[in-house]
Amino acid sequence: MSLHGLIAEFENSEELLHAARSARAEGYRRFEAYCPEPVEGLAEAMGLKDSGVAFAVLFAALIGAAIGYMLQYYALGLDYPINTGGRPLNSWPIFIVITFELAILFGGIAAFLAVLILSGLPRPYHPVFNVPGFERVSRDRFFLVIESADERFDEERTRRFLLSLGPREVSEVAD
């Protein structure tokens, strides 16, 4: 049985924030915090970069707008032009509506997919699910896992470090 890492269980979000900050200060990089609801300041404490979701949404929305406009321009301006009382074929004011709708549609789908892909979901199995009591992460408990893949990971030293943070319990995560 190989070891995925060590897990510490905390009572509240303040303790988790403190633990995440300490782990980072201690030089750990491959660690993960788990919590039942978003915790303000956790991303900074863990040293996460700005979420890429925003960029994905902007990019997809622009693509959607371009497709929306070009679709209409091609269909009604080039492929099957209909002269309606001499009005311009490129009647952009009315084209805005579908351009806008497709921008929203592409942006929205991108937002959803980007959240999943950047979070590594769907992922039915993960080692932390092996930890007894971890199911309370979606109720009222907070956890910090330091992975064995971290360069500074040493079973003894890391365990002592985690115990120094005042957790309820420290246990091993089987892989």
Binding site: A20, E32, A33, Y34, C35, P36, E37, P38, V39, L42, A43, M46, L48, L116, L118, S119, G120, L121, P122, R123, P124, Y125, H126, V128, F129, V137, S138
Partner: peptide, 10 residues
């Protein structure tokens, strides 16, 4: 879909 409430997820 395997949501674990990880800091990165949130």
């Amino acid at each position: 879909m395997g949501w674990r409430g990880a800091g990165r997820h949130w």
